[in-house]
Design a protein around this nucleic acid. Structure first.
Lengths: 349, 349
DNA sequence: TTGTATGCGTTATCAT
DNA sequence: ATGATAACGCATACAA
């Protein structure tokens, strides 16, 4: 490995001068600067980051702690983070951590000294788990429960997005609107549920517990929940799924049960993944700017790193946007068809 | 920051002893070992990785260079990598790099000294770009053109998978089978195209250039290509898309054109993303074990790091598997709901 | 403008 | 079994 000493020897200068040139610190004559640049380039010298961080106590690396979430969200948010990180000459150290407190603490500990700050995605609702993070470094909470004012956080306007979508469904004439909820302990899921209930109440509709079905953000959950909704004595006329994957699962179930969408049942999702518009019918959804979310999270973290003494906590939100496609595009049927669903389900098994 | 000195002082021993205990190197009495463990734990001591790597010349970090590929593949492959990396106490430094030579060289340079090895995903076909990588560290090429025997590589059995799928279509009676190709310079895409042609020739069908349409792995490309295929004077009876996203786009186009799938047109994809089975009709595809792919890549790289002197190059492949669903006209092999669904549906009525 | 020397936190070598 | 100390590669305060 070629070190700063090698470069210094080759250029007939001291290591200090090489360091000054490469870091732009201190005064160096134009000529030696040029020479050292040339030599360093020729020798393909790259400073040893460990040695550097030892003395500067900076790593130029950001940690990213991810939960067990799959799908496109994950990759796109990382992409947004990497773009911003690279632009600021930072690296990304990425790791999955179990969402519980122990998992996160372990992960943070493993990253200590390797990173200048951490973005934590811990959608888990448990209030206590993220308090008193044993971190001496800046932290940004992404899509997690915002804490007192101890930690910077960045979230989506989940509640507003859900509320707008459900309001839209109501405006189409729907009164019995079901929701397929996200994972029970998930923050985003809870907020979307809150928005759903809020929209109903605002329109004078009492939320019906029977229309709030369990889900876990997977296609399978959406499929199962939709079947259950179809079997209800007083079937809903619209389904709002807490994410697109479940909405797609629901569409699949409705199709197999020969329920027309949107005529007999309107369906809406959340996230607006690229596939949404290619569904049959194209899926109405709440668009989430995922790339921007990642980028903002890193910006926030970098700010925290640069201004460590500035202890005012920041709490930001990125806005969602309603995207209406055909899956919600019609008025509800006046009367729900008789529940012949059971026969159909049985036939399909 | 608490250093090894602090721990040593607190435990009334020398730093050497602390180091020995924490690294399991050298002999230490049970009692002092216990004491030091206790003190270190209490003080929340974490070794400074930079300082350590300075002397051991190891970072316990793996670099991952990713191209501009989106979607679920990305997140799942990282997940597979992280699982294996964590199990071996390694970290993942992840970065996106432009697929050209300059981009990769820059990225590797930026990672130098920070990582013990690199997994490079560079699907670009350009033969020269990856030769003479300026790397002094072990490299594994993932889903890239395998090089002479200079670099370890791991790929998918693209050609075989495509060949099997097209053979399946032929066996169903199709003679005019179109392909929607992947990105022009993409290695996986080229191999899938090769498998397609191979299968046709093996069955005595001459590949028809008109049936080989351009694509770029996006839903939009699949949509457009399918429309063009429909407008051909001598329309194909089956479409093989080089990935699922394009197949889904194609399904969308066929639906809008009122072309029945699979009766009027069979459709097959590649990747078997989770959504495939929820399409209408459920999409036949070539299953790719993405998680395993990431895990294997890291295993390969770790092997290269552990046995640096072993200069035999390894070239491995992970196997794909045919998954036949309704979109190609066979009997529906799978049903989305879990087996207990019927009971739950009935119970909820 | 440039060089010398110190120390960052750790492991490893040599004593004891 | 334990301690003292020399590296590792770098940035920087201080000297020249």
């Amino acid at each position: 490995m070629v070190t700063i000493k090698d470069v210094a020897r080759e250029a007939n200068v001291s290591v200090a001068t090489v360091s000054r040139v490469l870091n732009g610190s201190g005064p160096v004559s134009d000529e030696t600067r040029r020479l050292i640049r040339e030599v360093a380039g020729r020798m393909r010298y790259v400073p040893h980051s460990g040695a550097r961080s030892l003395i500067t106590s900076k790593t130029e690396t950001l940690g990213v702690l991810l939960p067990d979430l799959y799908g496109e969200f994950f990759s796109e948010v990382i992409r947004g983070m990497d773009d911003t990180a690279q632009r600021n000459n930072f690296h990304l150290l990425i790791s999955r951590a179990y969402a519980d407190r122990h998992g996160i603490e372990t992960a943070i500990k493993a990253m200590r000294g390797r990173v200048d700050g951490v973005v934590i995605m811990s959608p888990d609702l448990d209030e206590k788990s993220l308090l008193n993070l044993p971190s001496t470094i800046p932290v940004v909470l992404l899509c997690s429960v915002p804490r007192g004012n101890e930690i910077d956080s960045l979230t989506i306007t989940n509640c507003r997005g859900a509320r707008e979508m459900v309001a839209h469904l109501v405006s189409l004439g729907h009164r019995r609107i079901a929701i397929i909820k996200g994972s029970a302990r998930n923050y985003d899921a809870a907020e979307r549920l809150r928005g759903y209930r809020m929209a109903l109440r605002e329109r004078g509709i009492a939320p019906d517990p029977y229309l709030e079905r369990e889900g876990d953000f997977t296609e399978a959950a959406g499929y199962t929940a939709a079947l259950k909704l179809l079997s209800l004595p007083n079937r809903p006329t619209a389904i709002f799924a807490a994410n697109d994957s479940m909405a797609i699962g629901a569409l699949s179930a409705l199709r197999e049960s020969n329920v027309e969408v949107p005529e007999e049942m309107a369906v809406a999702g959340f996230d607006d993944i690229p596939l949404a518009r290619y569904m049959d019918p194209p899926l109405s959804s709440v668009h989430v700017p995922i790339h921007e979310l990642g980028a903002k999270a890193v910006e926030l973290l970098l700010h925290g790193i640069m201004h460590k003494n500035d202890h005012t906590r920041r709490r930001e939100r990125v806005s969602t946007e309603l995207v209406i496609r055909r899956s919600t595009g019609a008025e509800p049927a006046e009367r729900p068809p008789p529940p012949t669903t059971l026969n159909k389900v049985m036939a399909s098994i």
